[in-house]
């Protein structure tokens, strides 16, 4: 297997993990709306995944850049920029005192990221197959 194939294999795995993370986030927000979880526990749970999610995505984007996969990099750049500005504005963590006000917005964001990771998943899968075929 060549380098590109390995890279996109990693991309497939990473986007699958991120995808599941988003599903988990959405389930947690729904639980909050139904009172199955209180806002403090929710924020404690979700906040520990915020940085791993961002770091995972940033690492993948960096690899794509280093590999010179321009299209894949451009696809990911906006989300990376969005994450960076969130951290810069200190708005990346979920706040238990604001969570009921921001939950619908957060949930929408998670759905959009979910769609994005799903799309990425299939794109990387396609690129991986193309790379493997080229390898043969």
């Amino acid at each position: 297997m060549n380098g590109e194939g390995l890279l996109f294999l990693f991309g497939v795995v990473a986007s699958a993990v991120l995808l599941f993370a988003m599903v988990f986030f959405i389930i947690m927000f729904s639980d909050l709306e139904c009172d199955y979880i209180n806002p403090i526990d929710l924020c404690n749970k979700l906040n520990q995944f915020v940085f791993p999610e961002m770091a995972g995505h940033a690492f993948l984007t960096l690899l794509l850049l280093l590999n010179g996969s321009w299209w894949a990099f451009l696809l990911n750049a906006p989300l990376l920029a969005y994450h960076i500005q969130k951290v810069a504005k200190q708005r990346h963590m979920y706040d238990a005192t604001e969570i009921f006000r921001t939950a619908p917005e957060n949930k929408r964001e998670c759905f959009m990221k979910l769609a994005f990771y799903l799309l990425s998943f299939f794109y990387y899968l396609y690129r991986m197959i193309v790379a493997l075929l080229a390898d043969d």
């Binding site: 709306e33 009172d35 209180n38 806002p39 238990a96 005192t97 009921f100 006000r101």
Partner: peptide, 12 residues
């Protein structure tokens, strides 16, 4: 839809 005052909103 919204509450104002000094408290912690524990569920909706």
């Amino acid at each position: 839809t919204a509450f104002h005052g000094n408290f912690f909103l524990r569920s909706t």
